[in-house]
Design a protein around this nucleic acid. Structure first.
Lengths: 132, 132
DNA sequence: CCTTGACCTGGAGCGCACTCCAAGGTCCAT
DNA sequence: ATGGACCTTGGAGTGCGCTCCAGGTCAAGG
């Protein structure tokens, strides 16, 4: 019987079995995952590669609803590459902006860390030379 | 009457008035925001600067509960700089890791964008030279 | 034969971070 | 002094993305 069980797919993708079922229910898969004779899901390569893409989109902050829109486009087959491109490029811009924002905020936090580091070192110095 | 009204503070901080009240209720402020004679909040400089720090922590993904822990430390006054440092440094590491992860995923998405760009351009070429 | 355990489904529940609302008081320009 | 914008509180509601659960099927091992 080819393909991975849902538990194996969970390990492989780093998601939980619950999340895999949820993604499928929610229309994020390109097609329903195949089933064994007894109705158990079998994840084949194509499924796993698609889940990897979904994971990348999610990990970069794309909402489920937009992942579904993308899945819808891919599912419809060739001919809408321009639309897919627009969606991905839009997402790219969003991510770049977020990255820049986070980096700026992190810079400010780093400066704060610098201040506390100085304060703590000064305290240590004082302790090292007691009697003021 | 000194300080900004909640509406003005909202504009200044980029948060909503509701969120400002929520932050205060949830223990994220260093002390309760001052009030006018009639009980309306007045945000002074110190409040606004603290909210900016909170915003930076939130924007870099720190959960409310950790911001509150940090606020608790600062509220307790001098002497726990080492603890604050530990909290901020821990957060810094988390953020750096996230940034790296997002950048890696974005790289993969960029490669996908490249593929679609090629596909779309090829389609355009075909249209430009009809009758294959 | 019986238990164990992996899987199934539909649906409820949860944690997070807000966001909104009702009912009422305040401010101020005309 | 009146209308309308703004503020107060406590508490309920929302959207997101899972996460968990009950009750059931099925196959394999002891």
């Amino acid at each position: 019987m080819p393909g991975l069980t849902i538990a194996q797919a969970a390990v492989h993708t780093g998601l939980t079995a619950d999340t895999l079922r949820y993604y499928e229910r929610d229309g994020l898969m390109l097609q329903p995952v195949g089933r064994s004779a007894t109705g158990h899901r079998r994840y084949v390569d194509r499924d796993l590669r698609w889940i990897e893409m979904v994971t990348r989109l999610r990990a970069t902050g794309m909402p489920i609803r937009d992942v579904r829109r993308y899945a819808d486009l891919v599912r419809r087959g060739e001919g809408n590459e321009a639309e897919r491109l627009e969606l991905l490029r839009g997402h790219r811009q969003t991510v770049l902006q977020q990255l820049a924002e986070v980096q700026e905020h992190l810079g400010a936090i780093d400066r704060k860390i610098g201040i506390y580091t100085d304060a703590v070192e000064q305290r240590l110095d004082l302790e090292r030379t007691p009697g003021r």
